[in-house]
Design a protein around this nucleic acid. Structure first.
Length: 452
RNA sequence: GGCGACGUGGCCAAGCGGUCUAAGGCAGGGGUCUGCAAAACCCUUAUUCGGCGGUUCGAAUCCGCCCGUCGCCUCCA
């Protein structure tokens, strides 16, 4: 398996001989998770499922940054505690992801439960003079880390030229970033060698990934927007601390979701929550939407595409439900499986992989029509879909309060008219059902219905 | 201003030096099935890859310029 590394800008092989350590940056739980978080989670879940299917061993950690300025502000506004806010959104987040068929991480540490590790790390950085304390705040000394900027391909001078960086009186250098922040008034604080305070943004990921996965990760992932400053700073403090580069062998970043050509983010406020999306579309269609293109590229949110994915999923479902003949003449699925695996192993090319799935589906349908035994291929197809986390039996959560009894009564009435060959009345009932949002179809097995 | 990504059929999207007259999905057209439909199935739909030059025996794929869209440089998946 090869993955594109943001830092070295090339494809890199994954070591299959030992357990792979994978760390994905999680959310800051201060508001409801949006579909951008969902996309990121689905992409890394797809990676994980594929690796497992290829017998890789891996440890998968995703954190929660449950202490930060925004969390403090929300708690203040709502007159409650950061605990209550973060717990609420963490459980909501996990719940939404499980509906999307995202597997839970092996470890999901919370920043607030790893304060001691962070303090140890900051102390070590200070003793190495890579960091310093001023008035209860601690900062990382950017100029002490030679390769600062290597991930985001920029240097401190260029960034300063941008002149949009707030110059904090306390810092030695404007680009130095906070490792520890002094407690102010009634804000939450933990005891530390520098007085009460709380961790800065980046340090939690360094501390937690090292604690659970060691100093050299195989893959460190997250959204593109984390490249700077978050991941850049993580590298600086982690490698500065360990003197054992690389902090991560591969940096893997997914593209972001755009809404009307504008990035969707909590700060802009153009948000679609995961649960909103799940109300409208099945988990299967949503997952297909997220992986329909290259994971590194931005994705434009588009209802028309989600609807088309819903239809595509439906076709797959039909193929899976075909009753195979028990003929000795059997359709061999290997060709499709191989293409699928080749695509996936080359930097997670999910679009090509999906292509092979649809080719397989068509081939199965054709074979079915020729009475060829397709059961082995159907099983293989189901397996591939499972690797993509696409569960064709998933339904959306639409809860349109329809009266099932009423629908069935209408269908029975229509069938009576059909038997009497009174097609005019039968068609009227069909139109009425359609107006109610119900599509019906006659099959050998009786009349079926579904939501439109 | 600096750094980076992207521009492929009506829409989404893969391909990144020859097997490309360009995968796959949706929509469209034709057919099977049906009382008629719907759903499903089958067949079909780009000599062309933002524009202009260049490199090469050969380019959607490499290089240059231009046009356009977006992201990062401040919190963000």
């Amino acid at each position: 398996m090869q993955i594109y590394d943001t830092l070295d800008k090339k494809l890199k092989d994954l070591n299959s001989n030992r357990t792979l350590n994978i760390y994905i940056c999680g959310i800051t739980p201060y508001s409801e998770s949006h579909i951008g978080h969902a996309m990121s989670a689905v992409i890394f879940d797809t990676l994980r499922r594929y690796l497992l299917s290829q017998d890789y061993k891996l440890k998968f950690v995703q954190n929660f940054t449950d202490i930060d300025d925004k969390l403090i502000n929300v708690a203040k506004e709502k007159n409650t505690t950061i605990d209550k806010i973060s717990n609420k959104y963490i459980s909501q987040h996990l719940n939404s992801l499980s509906k999307l068929n995202v597997m839970p991480a092996d470890h999901a540490p919370k920043a607030t439960e790893e304060i001691k590790e962070m303090i140890n790390m900051i102390e070590a950085l200070i003793s190495k003079e890579m960091a310093y304390e001023i008035n209860g705040d601690c900062y990382f000394r950017v100029n002490k880390f030679d390769t600062y900027g290597k991930l985001s391909k920029r240097n401190t001078d260029e960034m300063l030229a941008g002149a949009r960086i707030d110059i904090n009186e306390n810092k030695e250098h404007p680009m130095d970033f906070a490792l520890w922040k002094k407690q102010i008034n009634d804000e939450p604080g933990w005891e530390s060698p520098w007085g009460n305070g709380r961790p800065g943004w980046h340090i939690e990921c360094s501390a937690m990934s090292m604690k659970y996965l060691g100093q050299n990760l195989d893959i460190h992932g997250g959204g593109r927007d984390l490249i700077f400053p978050h991941h850049e700073n993580e590298i600086a403090q982690s490698e500065g601390f360990s003197d054992n580069p690389p902090f991560s062998n591969i940096w893997m970043h997914n593209g972001l979701i755009n809404l009307k050509s504008e990035k969707m983010s909590k700060s802009i406020g153009n948000i679609i929550s995961i649960d909103d999306l799940l109300q409208k579309y099945s988990a299967a269609a949503i997952r297909m939407f997220f992986i329909s293109g290259n994971y590194k590229n931005p994705l434009e949110y588009d209802d028309a595409i989600l609807i088309s994915n819903e239809k595509a999923i439906n076709r797959l479902k039909q193929t899976l439900n075909l009753n195979s003949s028990d003929s000795l003449d059997e359709l061999d699925p290997d060709k499709f499986i191989n293409k699928f695996n080749q695509s996936m192993s080359k930097d997670l090319n999910t679009s090509l992989a999906l292509g092979s799935i649809f080719e397989m589906s068509r081939s199965i349908n054709q074979s079915f029509n020729k009475n060829i035994n397709i059961s082995k291929s159907q099983l293989a197809l189901a397996k591939l879909l499972n690797i993509l986390g696409i569960d064709t039996d998933s339904e959306n959560e639409t809860n349109n309060n329809l009266d099932t009894k009423e629908i069935e009564d209408l269908i029975n009435l229509r069938n009576k008219h059909r038997l009497d060959k009174d097609y005019k009345k039968a068609d009227e009932i069909r139109d009425k059902l359609e107006a109610m949002g119900i599509a019906i179809y006659d099959s050998d097995d009786g009349t079926k219905w579904r939501n439109i």
